[in-house]
Amino acid sequence: MRQTFAPALLLLLSACGGGAEKTEAPAEPAGQAEAGTPPAATGPSLALAPAAFAQCATCHAIKPGVNAVGPSLFAVYGRKAATGPAYAYSEAMKASGLTWDDATLDSYLTAPMKHVPGTKMTYAGMADAAKRKEVIEFLKTLK
């Protein structure tokens, strides 16, 4: 009996979704247009990030208003340090007076704990200057 059941099951399963007709998915989930809330996929995508950014993505989100272990990096470039919304920054970062530009980010990403002693960011740093540049260029796109 099992020998006839397995091929029949495979035939049945292979018929699922294999037809020539395609149905379009709705543009928005039901009820979302009425509520006026943006879809969850709004904002930048990690698919566009350089490979070196994977280290950053373990602790930081890139969507607006989404904090993780670290604050969201959305619109961080050009912003004064410790001013992102709804994140509990360290006193050291609040007092740093930094503004996130190319030079500051490059120095900070090289050795965060040396650049801002007392920062919550326990990342050892990114030694490769080319990778830091790629990350900084990506951060500039997060707006």
Rank of each mutant, 00 (worst) to 15 (best):
I136H: 08
A88Y: 01
K120H: 13
K63L: 14
T122W: 10
P71M: 10
K94W: 02
Y77N: 07
H60I: 12
V69Y: 01
A111I: 02
A129I: 12
K94Q: 14
G65N: 01
G118P: 07
V69K: 05
V76Y: 01
G70I: 07
P112Q: 09
A129N: 07
G65T: 01
V69N: 04
V66I: 14
L139A: 10
K120A: 15
D102C: 05
V69L: 12
Y87F: 15
L139N: 06
C59F: 01
G70A: 11
A82G: 05
Y87C: 12
A88F: 02
A95C: 01
A130L: 13
E91A: 15
M93C: 06
P85W: 00
I62R: 06
K63W: 06
A95L: 07
R132S: 03
L98A: 11
T83F: 09
A130D: 13
K131S: 11
T83R: 07
T141F: 07
K140Y: 06
R79Y: 04
D101C: 12
T141P: 07
G125D: 05
A130S: 14
H60N: 12
M126G: 00
K80S: 14
E137W: 04
K133I: 01
A129E: 14
C59S: 00
T122R: 08
A68G: 04
L109H: 03
L98C: 00
Y87G: 03
A68C: 02
F138K: 03
R79W: 03
S72P: 00
K114G: 00
G84I: 12
A92D: 07
T119P: 11
A127E: 13
T83M: 10
T119I: 09
G118N: 06
T110D: 09
G97P: 11
L73W: 08
V135L: 02
Y89D: 13
A111W: 06
W100E: 04
L139M: 15
H60C: 08
Y87L: 11
K120T: 11
S90Q: 09
F74Y: 11
V69M: 02
G78H: 09
K120Q: 15
N67Y: 03
G125L: 09
T99Q: 12
A92I: 08
F138A: 08
M113G: 01
G118S: 08
T58K: 14
S90V: 05
E137Y: 00
K114R: 10
W100F: 02
E137I: 00
G78T: 09
A111Q: 13
A95S: 11
Y77D: 08
T141W: 07
I62W: 02
T99S: 10
A111S: 15
A82H: 02
F74R: 00
R132K: 10
A82L: 06
A129V: 14
S72E: 03
M93F: 07
A82E: 09
Y108Q: 02
M126I: 12
V69A: 15
T110G: 13
D106G: 11
A81S: 13
D128R: 01
P71H: 13
S72R: 08
Y108E: 00
I136T: 11
Y87V: 05
Y89V: 09
L98D: 01
V116C: 13
G65V: 00
F74S: 04
G65C: 00
A86I: 02
Y87H: 15
K133R: 09
A88T: 03
H115D: 11
S107K: 14
G65W: 06
I136P: 04
T110M: 08
W100V: 08
A61V: 02
T104N: 10
